[in-house]
Amino acid sequence: MEDILEKALEWAVQGEKVAIATVTQTWGSSPCPTGSQLVVNGDSVFFGSVSGGCVEAAVVEESQRVIASGNATELSFGVSDEAAWEVGLACGGEIRVLVEPVA
């Protein structure tokens, strides 16, 4: 089985910039349980998942900002979001995702 954090460490050891995204809270019918993870490098290559595919693109994009700033951030996604048009969860669930840089 693929190990997401092994990938993050492999990148970090190679000197690449890395961010780790973790689902920290869910409501309703979100497809990935809390603790689900996605890792991203500075070229937006990513492994893992934090949803059924609905918000991955937004998380990868935000990861680039986190990598650049060096500061973690917690994102919320849900149907009630203003950004729902772009990155809402089609399933009607809501999730929080912590995105942190590896430093």
């Binding site: 190990d3 954090l5 092994e6 993050a8 460490l9 970090a12 780790i20 430093a103």
Partner: peptide, 14 residues
Amino acid sequence: MKKNILDQVVIAKR
């Protein structure tokens, strides 16, 4: 996440 924490998690998993 600090790299040494990531190290510890990955090593424990291994």
